[in-house]
Write a protein that binds this DNA or RNA. Structure first.
Lengths: 220, 220
DNA sequence: CGGGATCCTTGACGATACTG
DNA sequence: CAGTATCGTCAAGGATCCCG
């Protein structure tokens, strides 16, 4: 790629920050992921070899440190947080459009949902929730979210506990709800999201299903 | 390039902002350039076809508007300023290293110098300053800066007014002075920058030769 | 789990020339 | 001045497989 030939610090930052996927990797680190696989679950469409390469690069420029099996932000990395935050604000205010099918990768959606579960509001004991997506490649169609407060686990294969609650939806719809573009109650009423299971679990779903923390940033 | 498959607003911003050269084009717009050639003088190593492409893209996503021969930031574009500013801060604090030869393109350096001239402190009347760089490709070795307060003009060919003052330096040295890494007085003392001309113009040089406005950002 | 190695494609980019 | 057109390259990154 080569550099920009400029001594300007904006160019220097751009050389670090604007390679493909890098801002999203930083987002994951800023959000607290430290393990390789956790980071990758936040960028499921990124190949592992490329993620490795980016992590090495970020280490080389001093944004992260690699200790054992963990990647931790250095002070320099921590100070990228304002930039990522500003990017979130700007995207939310100016780019956010109706979510397109291309932007609703089910793997990322499920990982985001998993990260936002309100464990305090989850049913006591263990609850296995099966998500089934329409209009989605077979490999990403069916997910299990295992709530066992305070833990939350996400699997692509049946964990074998049986299913307590089934959620069916188009990933575009569920993502729209997650991002606050469609009220959950409305989607349930229109049955674009359907819940199957005991009524106390159906009623409890909206309580623990957390929305994106970026909602509400728009009005600044 | 294709997108990231994510509905996250950070990803949306990244799709706009992290293509090659884009942050620097935004910088030029934020700094006030509106004409194609002015913008390009701030990114001299970018081909005009690519600049056109980027401007079209920025127009398409609503960051700029194209009116006649001018490109102006929309409100959305104006709000990119905090991001660019943060990038400058971060680069200045964490990446800034000794300026390398690869980062000292003479065309960008001269354009930056031109933009920072303190016209109030320039000599009255017209002063033609000839910059001559060592260790630089022939085509970028020799520049003329015409001070005629309040205007400042930069040429690659002799404007034909005769030369009042000649500045000789390595572009790496001059860039280091511009960025505040080397005091100008020191460079003059060591004769890594030399000035030839009437003594009142030699003495006046440090007055109108402005340094980067990004200096001082580091201590925050 | 945390990668490394390889292959292969494609489209982004650079270079150059030309136009109204 | 403000681009357009064409062409060639080359390397980024996607895909796949493998390994300790």
């Amino acid at each position: 790629m080569a550099g920009y030939g400029q001594f300007c610090p904006i160019a220097a930052t751009a050389e670090v920050l604007t390679e493909r996927w890098t801002p999203l990797v930083i987002r994951e680190l800023v959000d607290g992921s430290r393990r390789f696989n956790d980071i990758q679950r936040g960028v499921p469409l990124m190949s592992s070899s490329l993620l490795t390469k980016r992590l090495r690069m970020l280490e080389a420029v001093g944004v992260i440190e690699h200790q054992g099996n963990e990647y931790v932000l250095t002070p320099a990395g921590e100070e990228l947080r304002p930039i990522v935050d500003q990017m979130a604000v700007w995207g939310e205010r100016w780019i956010r459009r109706t979510i397109r099918r291309d932007d609703a990768d089910a793997a990322y959606l499920m990982w985001a949902i998993r990260s936002s579960v309100v464990t305090d509001a989850a049913p006591p004991g263990r609850t296995t929730v099966n998500f089934r997506f329409t209009a989605t490649p077979r490999a990403k169609r069916c997910w299990w979210l295992v709530l066992e407060p305070p833990a939350t686990d996400l699997c692509l294969t049946d964990p074998g506990y049986g299913t307590d609650l089934t959620v069916r939806s188009d990933p575009v719809i569920l993502a729209s709800v997650y991002m606050g573009d469609i009220p959950l109650a409305e989607a349930l009423r229109h049955r674009t999201i359907t819940l199957d299971g005991p009524s106390h679990l159906v009623r409890g779903f909206p309580k623990w299903f957390g929305l994106s923390s970026l909602i509400g940033i728009r009005q600044s």
